[in-house]
């Protein structure tokens, strides 16, 4: 017996395999484990940020500050490491705590002043980008022996597939997120708040605590994504990762999570990012298609999945 609640997830997974299959048939070397694991390592930071976004969207909110937090993290890391000679192992906890606090403040403002998440996180985005450009308008390189070691750490799988630090971190984050979202009391609360905040409150769910934690988690993961992002670039730049929040939202939606909240799976978000990655890889393999087709295809995919959601929601007896 197939549970109808898995339909969007199944569609997402099927779409990924179809796209990957088309690429594999058309191009030599596309259907290899190397290309697959490159999808993971190239998009690791996006997966981490999108996992945080999934928590927020499951609760019926939205977090537009993700990209800005990634950029701010990179800038702070590079300044502390290159200018003040801090050890990266000291820097990481500091930025992670700072990022979490930033998210918690946004969550508190959203809950206590009953403001729309959209506008509060928009202000948060301005704030984080503004702070990043105040710290430094130029790109700062990160030079530290330990940093290079961490970024280059990894091992080969058969078939030339490389698993690096970023892939390991992103899979770990995904694993923990799946457990939190689907098997803990907090996860249940997130779904309840997204389903109907009023009923959730009447059921005795602590709304304030839940909302603040959700945005704190999202900002924590965005900060972590910023650290992983700096593993690719070895620098911090205030204009880095522009628009990543939109990619993350798109990935969550393509992953089958309902934008009104209360329904969706963490695993779907992984597939959402991978689908966007496959589209990008396909276009770069093809060579004749221009890169701006990526945006158009992602826009179309977004539309199809939202339309599918509407059909499913309407089909449900209320």
């Amino acid at each position: 017996m197939f549970n109808p609640k898995f339909i969007p997830l199944a569609v997402t997974c099927a779409l990924f395999f179809v796209l990957f299959g088309i690429g594999a048939i058309q191009f030599d070397g596309f259907g290899s484990s190397r290309v697959f694991f490159n999808l993971l390592s190239d998009n690791a930071f996006l997966i981490i940020a999108a996992v945080g976004m999934t928590f927020v969207i499951l609760s019926g909110g939205i977090d537009l500050s993700v990209g800005a937090v990634i950029a701010l993290t990179g800038v702070i890391c590079s300044v502390l490491i290159s200018k003040y000679q801090w050890h990266p192992l000291v820097v990481f906890p500091v930025v992670l705590i700072g990022g979490t606090a930033f998210g918690a403040i946004m969550g508190a403002i959203i809950h206590y002043y009953k403001m729309q998440p959209f506008i509060v996180t928009l202000a948060g985005m301005f704030f984080a980008r503004g702070l990043a450009s105040v710290i430094s308008e130029e790109s700062i390189p990160i030079e530290h022996e330990f940093y290079n070691q961490v970024a280059e750490f990894g091992f080969m799988l058969p078939g030339d597939a490389w698993i690096g630090t970023s892939t390991i971190i992103c899979l770990l984050v995904l694993f923990v997120a799946i457990i939190i979202a689907h098997y803990t009391r907090f996860g249940g609360r997130v779904y309840a708040v997204g389903g109907d905040a009023n009923s959730a409150a009447l059921m005795g769910i602590p709304l304030a605590q839940t909302t603040i934690r959700i945005y704190a988690i999202s900002a924590f993961l965005a900060t972590l994504a910023g650290i992983v992002y700096s593993f690719y670039t070895f620098s911090g730049y205030s204009l880095a990762a522009v628009g990543v929040e939109l990619d993350a939202i798109a990935a969550v939606v393509i992953g089958g999570t309902l934008l009104t909240g209360g329904y969706g799976y963490m695993f779907g978000t992984l597939m959402g990012v991978l689908i966007m990655g496959v589209v990008q890889t396909y276009i770069s393999f093809d060579g004749t298609l221009s890169s701006w087709w990526t945006k158009i295809v992602i826009g179309l995919l977004l539309f199809c999945f939202i339309a599918l959601q509407q059909l499913l929601v309407r089909g449900k007896p209320r």
């Binding site: 939205i62 939109l246 009104t260 945006k295 826009g299 977004l302």
Partner: peptide, 23 residues
């Protein structure tokens, strides 16, 4: 007509629009 949340509905064109303009 499809009653999609405005933020999301207009997000589609926000993402795809620049691609169309570039095309």
């Amino acid at each position: 007509y499809m009653s999609i949340q405005p933020i999301v509905a207009t997000l589609i064109l926000m993402v795809a629009g620049r691609g169309i303009a570039q095309l």
